[in-house]
Nucleic acid binder design. Structure first.
Lengths: 188, 188
DNA sequence: CTCTTTTGCGACATAAGTGTCTCAAAAGAC
DNA sequence: GTCTTTTGAGACACTTATGTCGCAAAAGAG
């Protein structure tokens, strides 16, 4: 039984998102391999988390590239961003459980990622699509929070995976108040 | 130097929110007491987290009671809820780092709390104030996510504490898109 | 099929963190 | 001021988890 490292990483990340204090022994059991094998791939918790983060940064980078945030309206770009983030969401949810200082301080890649998302919100504000009443910093934080929250809800079965993109962007763009909400076609 | 248990709990929770894997030794140092004293108040990590959760449930219960969610419009109630949650937000942020299964499974109090928030969103949907396009389950999850995200942002200095209530409810009610946003007075 | 690589198991060594205890010092109460 | 309570420090015992190793079995490659 040869294990695909990426698959192991994903399964381990999933388990850790639910049980952030899990031991290596517990993780190994949960994903169906031996502790020795887990150790051969990720020599301890530190290295496992570092691999998760590395993977998250790489995938977020790819997602952002695929989303081409400078093209089209800011609203369209936000849709593309959310869709592109979906496969990375479980990783982001896990990183949230490790504390807020990890992303910013341990991997330089986050700075660039944050800056690009921040710039999207700023662009939307400059173009008049997005309100200037809420700071771009808060909007970026809110975006991450909603993505992580959605990932957890999907994982726990409270909401359907197919609604991921829609529920985040709909709430982020239009909020919950009925008054002022666009009809279904106005977004595009 | 006599330590106030509640104050210790608060300080420990703050530290743990930033460093979820911190040892008791590290926590004790960070909050300025000895490990022995920390142990006298909270006999180990398990007991510390249990105290945090107990405190969070109690405070959320009080917050919900103070917010009187059945009174007035759902929109008004949401404002009151967010304001009332503010002092509990750092505890909620910490509980997020401990995994999503902790709140629902370890303390029965969360069920009641969740149900009351869920009911607020449902009430808003029934009255036509809130859109039926987004599930109440997602809205409840999103509410928690934004509260935790705001708590982290305030803690890290990225946004100002005085903006807590406004930035959450504004985003949750109206979203970020300029089109369709109410003027400043339409909320009340 | 053979040969190579990967894996799991079990045992034990090692490391890190927690629990416990004593006692003097510090702080609180009156 | 005296007496009581709380605290911190240090030492050591205990617990838990991780690291390491050898080797046979399982799996993969050709």
């Amino acid at each position: 039984m040869t294990s695909d490292r990426d698959q192991l990483l994903r399964a381990a990340a999933d388990h850790l998102a639910r049980r952030p204090n899990a031991t290596q022994d517990e993780i190994a059991k949960a994903i169906g391999i031996s502790r020795a094998t887990l150790h051969r791939h990720f020599a301890g918790r530190r290295e496992l988390l570092a691999a998760v983060e590395e993977s998250a940064v790489t995938r977020m980078d790819e997602a952002l590239r695929a989303a081409r945030l400078e093209e089209g309206t800011a609203t369209q770009a936000l849709h593309r961003l959310t869709t592109a983030c979906e496969p990375v969401a479980p990783f982001l949810a896990l990183l949230y459980t490790q504390g807020q200082d990890i992303p910013e301080q341990t991997h330089p890649g986050w700075e660039d990622i944050d800056e690009r998302i921040l710039e999207l919100f700023r662009r939307g504000q400059r173009s008049g699509e997005f309100t200037p009443d809420l700071s771009a910093a808060w909007l970026t934080e809110a975006f991450y929070s909603l993505v992580a929250g959605a990932a957890w809800s999907v994982q726990s079965g409270r909401v359907a995976a197919r609604d991921f993109q829609h529920m985040i962007t709909d709430l982020l763009l239009h909020g919950v108040a009925s008054a002022g909400r666009p009809s279904r076609e106005t977004d595009r």
